Every structure is written in C-alpha cells, then in structure tokens.
Simulated assay, not measured.
Amino acid sequence: MAKRTITRDQIVKEAHKLVRAKGARALTFEAVARQMGVTKQAIIYWFPKKGALIEAMLLPSLEAEALAGQEAATRVETDRNVRQRFAAAIVDFHLSDLERFRTMYLSPQLTPDAFAMVTKGGHQVSSKVHAVTAQMYRTLAEALIAEGFATSDTARRKAFLLHTNVLGLVLMASLSDALNDPLAHDLADLRVTLLAQLA
C-alpha cells in the first residue's frame, strides 16, 4: 500500500472540520488522523504538541481579524470616525464567516480544557494570541487618541470595550445562526444601528 503524503495545511483544515462538526472536545490527534486516513504519527510529525495544532487553527484567523481592525483604525475617511470604521470592519469580518467566529471565540470559551492555552509541553498559545490582540488594541488606542475620543489613560480600555461590544453583536448573530433561530431584528439593520451609536 502506498504511503499517503499529507501537508500541515491539510491537517489544520481537517482539524477545523472536526471541531465544527463535533466540538472542541473531539479534537485529538487520533481523531484528526482517523478522519484523514493516516496514522497519529503523521499528525505528530507536523504538530508535536496539541498546542501547536490549536495555534495553527486559531492564530491566522486572529491575525486576520486584527489586521482588518488595524487597517480600519488607521484608514482616513471623512464620513466615519475611527470607532465606526473599526466596528464596521470587525462586524463585516466576522459576519462573512460565522463558523470561523465560533471556532475563534466560542470553542475555546466553551471547552477551555480542549483548547488549553498552555499545554503539557509548555507550548504557549496565549502569548502569541496576546501579542496579536495587544497590537490591535495599541493601534486602535492611538487612533482614538488622535481623534480626540480618548486620553492616553483611557484609550486602551476604550479600545478593548469597543472590540468586545462589537463581538457581542457577532456573538448573537453566530448563536442565532448555529441554532437556526433568527434574530428578532434584521442583522443589516442592527449593524447600521450599531454604527450610528458610535457617531
């Protein structure tokens, strides 16, 4: 029988499918290997620790979200302030792929043991996550100060609260989608109302 060659990207893609289909608790090297029709050792070759696989699953999405937010915060527009630009970018980023949002934010929160930030091997996913989010908050805080919406003492807190408030709308949309239970309000109208609140 010919040996099957797999790539790092294929493993990450299959791990995402597994988590989306069966939840974060189902994420094991054995389960990914079984789903791919390879041995557990083939997975371990690319990801010696579970933390490395989790990082490969989460970090690119977090980096993409942070980049979207940073680009919006630093972009100059005459018709929107920095808060509106940032909120619109984050909402649009997440609404474009609610499955990605659930993997990024809900799976780690609902099953923290499966997505432990520090694994047995000491692999620190959290330090890389914090570096990405810290840069996004720094960029947003600087833009809020430059716009006169925040002082250097309050900018970081305001950046964090803006981001988490925006995630609240996406969270409701994501849960509604996952449960196939429509929101009482049109999502496009909610987006417009959110941005209007930030005027």
Rank of each mutant, 00 (worst) to 15 (best):
139 T>W: 06
36 M>K: 05
166 V>C: 08
137 Y>P: 04
139 T>I: 11
122 G>H: 01
47 F>S: 06
35 Q>I: 09
162 L>P: 00
183 L>I: 07
51 G>T: 12
153 D>I: 10
22 K>G: 04
8 R>I: 11
103 T>N: 07
91 V>L: 14
10 Q>I: 08
63 E>R: 11
166 V>E: 04
136 M>D: 01
36 M>I: 01
109 Q>M: 14
75 R>I: 10
197 Q>S: 15
74 T>Y: 00
10 Q>S: 12
66 A>P: 00
188 A>N: 13
26 A>N: 01
31 A>M: 05
101 F>L: 07
73 A>E: 06
71 E>R: 11
32 V>K: 02
88 A>K: 14
170 V>T: 04
73 A>M: 01
106 L>K: 10
42 A>K: 04
142 E>G: 07
85 R>W: 08
128 K>Y: 06
81 N>S: 04
108 P>K: 02
134 A>K: 14
45 Y>W: 12
45 Y>I: 12
131 A>K: 09
38 V>E: 00
88 A>E: 15
99 E>V: 06
113 D>A: 13
148 G>P: 01
93 F>R: 01
46 W>V: 11
84 Q>T: 05
77 E>D: 13
81 N>P: 02
124 Q>Y: 09
116 A>D: 08
106 L>M: 14
71 E>D: 12
195 L>R: 02
13 K>I: 14
22 K>D: 15
128 K>L: 15
106 L>P: 00
193 T>A: 15
118 V>E: 07
7 T>C: 08
78 T>Y: 04
6 I>Y: 05
30 E>F: 10
79 D>N: 10
15 A>R: 05
83 R>P: 01
98 L>H: 05
192 V>C: 10
19 V>N: 04
36 M>W: 03
